Computed example of a mutant assay.
Amino acid sequence: MDETIRRVAEKLQQTERILVITGAGLSADSGLPTYRGLGGLYNAVTQEGLPIEEALSGPMLRRDPALCWKYLAELGRACLGAQPNAGHHAIARLQQGKPQCWVLTQNIDGYHRAAGSAAERLIEIHGELSPLYCQSCGALSPDLAAHLQLPLPPLCALCAGVLRPPVVLFEEMLPEPAVDSLYAQLRQGFEVVLTVGTTASFPYIVEPVTRTRLAGGFTVDINPSVTALGRLAEVQIAGRALDVLPELVSHIKFD
């Protein structure tokens, strides 16, 4: 066994309060492109000449829902076209064996839930792509795939209002319940924090790493390349989550 893998596995074995933070790199191992590679959406501007941040914004959804949904549909089709990988399943197994293991994800694809992660210990800080809900009457419409086969934007069957996913668009606030849940857990503290497949510098991603390390906890970054976030961690493991996480979890003996 690689010495670094052994060391991290031993730490996970010995501790209970664990936070796993995941980003787009984890789902990229499922074949889902990271946003900057998704049909080139984030590489420059849209076909309409707009920055993608403007097209996929809350104001655009209100002003021109068809345009916003054109690019929401791209995200939806990509997410529906892939499935959880061994990394997602390894995290779910860790949660099953460690009842105080939490997952904080930036991803909106729902793969953690699909892999079996405990919903009550899963913080989807950017929301998710389904179920859709009506902005006018609040009615739920769970079949995203069916809506993507119809003209856009999708409309409510009850009142003909525009449907939207419970996802955080640009220029929108993070969901308060998710933020409250994260900081409630941070106040309790974590013994180990793993960052997986993320390069984000958002405060709510960086703070758990820095706070845990300052408190004497153990921090690990799993990423194919060294990132600014990874430099904050005590240990860096260069590799794909798809390969690293199953090996890590395989060396943990659960009660």
Rank of each mutant, 00 (worst) to 15 (best):
A90D: 09
G216I: 02
Y111W: 04
G189I: 09
I108N: 03
H88S: 12
I21L: 06
A184F: 08
N107V: 04
L32W: 08
L214C: 04
Q83G: 15
I252H: 13
T15C: 14
C134N: 01
H88A: 10
F170L: 01
L144R: 05
V162E: 02
L56A: 08
G23W: 05
R93M: 14
V206P: 05
A55F: 02
G87V: 12
L194I: 09
S250Q: 14
Q95R: 09
G127P: 07
G49T: 01
A28I: 01
A44G: 14
F254Q: 10
A160H: 15
C79Y: 13
D2R: 14
F170K: 07
Q96Y: 06
H89A: 15
L232W: 01
S57D: 10
I5V: 13
L140N: 12
L32Y: 12
G40H: 10
N85M: 12
D109I: 02
A86W: 07
Q83H: 14
G216P: 06
L80S: 11
T227D: 01
K253N: 13
R63K: 15
A86P: 11
G31M: 06
A238K: 13
R187P: 00
V196D: 02
L182T: 10
Y71W: 11
G197K: 03
R164T: 08
E171W: 04
Q14D: 10
E191M: 03
D143E: 09
G217L: 02
L182H: 05
L163M: 11
G58I: 02
P131A: 00
Q47M: 00
R7I: 13
P51N: 13
L194M: 04
P153L: 01
H112F: 05
V45D: 05
I5F: 00
I125W: 01
V167N: 08
L140R: 14
T219K: 04
E234M: 14
P166S: 03
F190W: 11
Q236S: 11
S250T: 13
S225W: 03
M173H: 11
L144M: 08
F254K: 09
S130K: 13
S181T: 08
D180A: 14
A44T: 04
L140A: 09
W69N: 05
S201F: 02
K253F: 04
L248D: 04
E48F: 05
G39L: 07
V162W: 00
F254M: 12
L229N: 01
E207N: 14
V206G: 03
P166V: 00
G87F: 01
S201I: 09
G76F: 06
P175W: 11
A114H: 03
P142R: 01
A233C: 15
A238T: 07
D64P: 00
L94M: 06
R77H: 11
I252Q: 10
I18M: 03
A241K: 02
A241W: 00
A241Y: 02
P246Q: 13
F202S: 10
L194F: 06
L38D: 00
K98S: 00
G58M: 03
V168K: 09
A119L: 12
L155V: 06
G76T: 05
L158N: 15
Q185R: 15
S30D: 13
I252P: 05
G216W: 02
L26P: 15
A228D: 08
G31R: 10
S117H: 04
V193M: 01
G23V: 04
L232Q: 07
R187V: 09
G25N: 03
Y133V: 06
G230K: 07
L67R: 12
E74T: 15
